[in-house]
Design a protein around this nucleic acid. Structure first.
Ligand SMILES: NC(=O)c1ccc[n+]([C@@H]2O[C@H](COP(=O)([O-])OP(=O)(O)OC[C@H]3O[C@@H](n4cnc5c(N)ncnc54)[C@H](O)[C@@H]3O)[C@@H](O)[C@H]2O)c1
Ligand SMILES: NC(=O)c1ccc[n+]([C@@H]2O[C@H](COP(=O)([O-])OP(=O)(O)OC[C@H]3O[C@@H](n4cnc5c(N)ncnc54)[C@H](O)[C@@H]3O)[C@@H](O)[C@H]2O)c1
Lengths: 210, 210
DNA sequence: AAGCGTTTGTGAAAAACTTCACATGAAGGC
DNA sequence: GCCTTCATGTGAAGTTTTTCACAAACGCTT
């Protein structure tokens, strides 16, 4: 482990922390002030021990015999995840999928905001529900630099994905949420999370036939 | 390992098999007939040893000194994954996201077909691009039973997700691809794959700030 | 203030997964 | 037909992640 603050938290733990955070949010909505590792773990679909191990990576927040304070734990987790402040995100590729994502009003309350979208053909009619500007590709680099954008959602056709990704990275983007069904080649310090629906379906299909 | 056919392939391996399959498809498009574990692994973003271990779980297909036959390997993998035959899938919740998924023409060539969609308000205008029927919720159970549907894509609002999931499961669905940002409670033998974009973004955000 | 029931935090054990190292097998040239 | 080259397949070692088991800590009751 590293010496201070960051004991190298496993990737999977980080993923689960996000889940815990959402479960805690729902508890808070229901005005529940305290929760045991058992209850929270059940809500998150994991084992209580795992939840406690996950939390132990970055502190000890519980009260023995009682459980965790919902508000305090929420705060600590979102602090650790770095989502306490709103992150600006851009989207590239305003097609069927991109449009659905743009019009989704659920990201803001999770700490993200899609502040602009880019497309090769930005002449697209302004959808009534969409409030973000849709800009041309030639404006992308300067926009990214000016706004210090670090993350992008990539929903262009597969054939264009690598080229667009390269431009994003050149412009300073460090994290890409990639919807196109190809493996992007990127430098080590750039992070790509892939969302591939065909793979998810294939996966389901395999495990239900067993 | 079990005695025949199914040596208990790790979950992560299954996931990677899907990725290999897609890389192989691209090689085939480029008329490449043979590939080494090194080349394929690079394309898939994994280590060559891992690729070979993954394949070893269900057979030995390579030729030493030469590599793998692209066609043969594709066939074996899709056989193992059970995607050699087209799987019928339904979608529930034809909103912004559901509509984008319905109009996507990329699933068929991956072995899946969304054969129908269901919504609480099916009176929705038939989009020109959508060829699937959009039916009411009262028709769902009988449709699932008649067509032997085993998988469903769930893109209803969070508040409705659990209720709809219950109905899907009662009707015989064994696998759910869940887009709503909640953890579904399901019986053991039902499999849920979650796609949670907020979590993916949060994850990116964490790892790029380190 | 002591006892009781509950639940955390955590080393240690187990399981799962990845990487290493190299023997083995196949193809093609000489 | 043998030898060289290349790349697979795999036992063993290494690493990471999960689970177990239980002592320690806290609140509440008496
Ligand atoms: N729609 C879905 O449900 C779905 C499902 C799974 C995966 N995907 C993947 O998501 C991606 C987008 O899918 P879609 O259905 O929205 O496609 P789409 O064709 O509807 O939209 C693609 C958009 O990207 C734009 N574009 C094309 N080339 C570009 C470039 N070089 N630079 C910038 N913009 C460019 C196009 O103008 C278009 O607006 C694809 O890679 C697809 O495989 C989509
Ligand atoms: N749109 C996005 O980009 C996006 C991104 C991330 C997550 N999600 C999640 O995906 C889900 C759908 O999102 P959306 O933006 O498409 O929402 P939406 O409101 O546009 O669509 C929801 C659809 O579900 C239908 N519906 C509502 N209750 C129903 C019920 N009980 N039975 C059947 N159908 C019902 C509605 O009629 C509507 O057509 C939500 O859970 C959302 O949180 C969406």
């Amino acid at each position: 482990m590293k010496k201070s603050g960051r004991p190298v938290i496993p990737r999977k733990t980080i993923y689960r922390l996000s889940i815990y955070l959402r479960c805690l949010a729902r508890l808070r909505e229901n005005s529940i002030g305290t929760v045991s590792s058992e209850a929270l773990a059940k809500a998150a679909g994991v084992k209580p021990t795992q939840l406690r191990k996950d939390l132990a990576y970055f502190g000890t927040f519980g009260t023995r015999g009682l459980g965790y304070d919902v508000n305090e734990l929420s705060l600590k987790i979102s602090d650790e995840l770095g989502t306490s402040s709103l992150q600006p995100v851009i989207l590239v590729g305003v097609g069927n999928l991109g449009l659905a994502l743009l019009s989704y009003r659920g990201f803001e309350k999770e700490g993200f905001e899609i502040i602009a979208a880019f497309d090769a053909e930005p002449r697209r009619k302004r959808d009534k529900e969409i409030k973000q500007p849709i800009l041309g590709m030639d404006e992308m680099t300067s926009f990214i630099r000016e706004h210090g954008v670090k993350m992008a959602i990539l929903s262009v056709p597969a054939a264009a994905a690598q080229v667009v990704a390269n431009r994003l990275i050149e412009s300073g983007v460090m994290g890409i949420l990639n919807f196109s069904p190809i493996v992007l080649a990127v430098p080590e310090d750039v992070m790509v999370n892939n969302v591939n629906l065909a793979i998810e379906l294939e996966n389901l299909s395999y495990f239900i036939q067993s």
